[in-house]
Design a protein around this nucleic acid. Structure first.
Lengths: 207, 207
DNA sequence: GTCTATATGGTGATAGAC
DNA sequence: GTCTATCACCATATAGAC
């Protein structure tokens, strides 16, 4: 009864634990500042287990990077999937950011660490660009659709608008993390609403 | 004739060289990935010179951080100083970003590295927040003034508008660095113009 | 102030027992 | 697959000559 895991499952579980431990430590101390031993130790193993599951530290970092990118992509698609109205989208976005706010420091620092690592490792670099472009494309569709619904002519190339919104989201999270004072969970959504309102001004009947 | 430097100047020169070498290496390999020996070597010295001028690596990083922050502050103030019109401001900003674009990779990565370092060292953390707030305050004044000049009512709290513009600038540089394709030197200024136009729409006579 | 030499300790990665 | 033991290497920081 104690053991109901196949060998593959057990191995997968160990890898998962090592990856999770590494994610924590990378956020705390940086990729370069974290030793293999620390990773193994926090996951509840020794170095032997680490090298039994990963070729070397580099392989683990790349896998962590790919894993995070895949999860982010899933979340974004789930967020956009089957959304009815712009208001519903905003509601979902708001909830998403409330949730994210709870892990903002770890998330932000880990992403920065992994990005820097990827930038220095040509083989991993494509991973960073792909996610950004995907998000931008989704945004572009959403923005165009909503502006059309409001009967507003886009004030610039929709691709540019999407870039702006995307960059703004990034930048706001950075600011929020560096100086949390006075920046609440809703900044990103509030800013998005403001921009959409500005960009569709003149198309709506004034109250 | 060969030596016209006082002792203090000579010392200062060595410190400067070590700091400059460290800045390069930190961008290339990360703060943690750079050894004291590499710094000394690139600056044209050996470790002895390093420890003769800095207590340890930590002291050098903190000084580099403070130096960069001070320069950034100078540049921003110079940019805003004695500016006549919004158009002139945009022209200056454009030139500034063209110049910055030439060193974008190093600048961006070094800033990320130093920020991460500061976040993990409580004594250095205040340094990061201060610069951000200063920039935001300057922006707020400029935005308010320009909107007033155009006879437009700010579409939201000016502090919020400044936060948006500030965050947008940050985010755009990140995007531009990660995926340079199709993002030119002028993005930031173009985006700023678009926002200001959107926010002052309705106040101007239509053509 | 800058050098060389050295003390001391941590690191990634391997070998081989279980 | 996970362990312990071990290797070769590189790090920070110090000591003492010049």
């Amino acid at each position: 009864m104690a053991k109901r895991l196949t060998r593959a499952e057990s191995r997968e579980r160990t890898r998962e634990r090592l990856l999770a431990a590494a994610a924590e430590l990378f956020a705390e101390r940086g990729v370069n500042g974290t030793s293999v031993e620390q990773i193994a130790e926090r996951a509840g193993y020794t170095r032997g287990a680490f090298y039994g599951n990963f070729e070397d530290k580099h392989e683990l970092v790349v896998e962590l990077l790919a894993q995070r990118r895949a999860r982010e992509a899933e979340e974004i698609t789930a967020l956009a999937e089957g959304v009815g109205s712009f208001e519903e989208m905003l509601r979902r976005l708001r909830a998403w950011h409330v949730e994210r706010a709870r892990h903002l420091p770890e998330w932000f620092v880990l992403r920065a660490e992994l990005t820097l690592y990827a930038l220095r490792n040509p083989s991993a670099r494509p991973l960073v660009g792909a996610g950004e472009l995907e998000a931008r494309a989704l945004l572009e569709g959403g923005i165009s659709a909503e502006l059309a619904r409001r009967g507003a002519r886009p004030p610039a190339d929709p691709g540019f608008l999407a870039l702006i919104v995307h960059a703004l989201e990034d930048g706001l999270l950075r600011q929020r993390y560096l100086i949390p004072d006075g920046i609440g969970d809703d900044v990103v959504v509030d800013a998005l609403e403001l921009l959409m309102r500005s960009w569709s001004a003149g198309a709506q009947s004034p109250t």
